[in-house]
Computed example of a mutant assay.
Amino acid sequence: MSNARASHLTRRGVLAAGGALGLGAALAACGDDDAKSGGSAAKEDASAQSGPWTFEDDRGTTVKLDKVPANIVAFTGVAAALFDYGIVVKGVFGPTKTADGKPDVQAGDLDISKVEILGNVWDEFNVEKYAALAPDVLITTMYDKAGTLWYVPEASKDKIAKLAPSVGISVYDRQLTAPLEQVWKLAESLGADVTGAKATDAKKSFETAATRLRAAAKARPEIKVLAGSASDQIFYVSGTNLSVDLEYFKSLGVNFVEPPESAKAEGGGWFESLSWENVDKYPADIIMMDDRAQAIQPDAITKATWKKLAAVKAGQVIPRAAEPILSYEKCAPLLDALAEAIEKAKKVS
Results as ranks from 00 to 15, higher is better:
230 A>V: 09
98 T>D: 14
318 I>A: 02
48 A>E: 14
277 E>L: 03
50 S>V: 08
16 A>F: 01
336 D>G: 06
280 D>Q: 09
338 L>T: 10
78 V>R: 07
175 Q>C: 02
177 T>G: 10
246 L>P: 10
163 L>R: 06
180 L>V: 05
50 S>K: 14
232 D>N: 11
169 I>S: 00
130 Y>K: 01
213 L>A: 11
57 D>I: 01
40 S>I: 11
236 Y>F: 07
344 K>T: 14
115 V>R: 01
191 G>D: 09
233 Q>C: 01
90 K>D: 04
205 S>P: 01
253 G>H: 00
315 G>C: 12
281 K>L: 06
153 P>L: 04
256 F>R: 02
107 A>F: 14
66 D>K: 03
82 L>F: 06
156 S>V: 07
189 S>A: 14
10 T>M: 09
189 S>Q: 11
224 K>D: 06
106 Q>C: 05
65 L>Q: 00
174 R>E: 11
246 L>R: 07
255 N>M: 10
308 K>L: 05
34 D>W: 02
168 G>Q: 12
61 T>F: 04
91 G>R: 04
298 P>Q: 07
292 R>K: 03
22 G>F: 03
29 A>D: 13
41 A>V: 00
33 D>I: 08
126 N>E: 11
47 S>C: 13
24 G>R: 01
74 A>M: 07
119 G>R: 09
270 W>G: 13
242 L>M: 12
169 I>L: 00
191 G>H: 08
122 W>Y: 15
286 I>K: 08
114 K>M: 08
290 D>S: 15
187 A>S: 12
18 G>Q: 13
271 F>M: 08
335 L>H: 08
97 K>T: 07
211 T>M: 11
321 A>I: 06
92 V>H: 02
265 A>H: 13
300 A>S: 14
105 V>P: 02
160 I>E: 10
287 I>Y: 08
53 W>Y: 14
246 L>E: 08
118 L>A: 11
183 V>I: 12
164 A>W: 02
6 A>S: 13
186 L>G: 12
343 E>S: 01
269 G>D: 13
48 A>C: 04
309 L>T: 03
168 G>L: 10
329 E>P: 01
250 K>S: 11
164 A>N: 06
22 G>T: 05
125 F>T: 10
8 H>Y: 12
181 E>C: 03
327 S>Q: 03
342 I>V: 15
108 G>R: 02
215 A>Q: 15
46 A>M: 06
4 A>M: 09
325 I>R: 06
300 A>E: 14
196 G>F: 01
194 V>N: 08
97 K>F: 03
138 L>M: 09
213 L>G: 11
74 A>R: 04
159 K>V: 00
103 P>Y: 07
184 W>I: 03
78 V>I: 15
83 F>R: 15
318 I>G: 02
28 A>C: 07
6 A>F: 08
102 K>G: 06
243 S>C: 15
271 F>E: 08
273 S>Q: 09
215 A>Y: 09
38 G>S: 12
127 V>L: 04
125 F>S: 10
141 T>H: 02
62 T>Q: 07
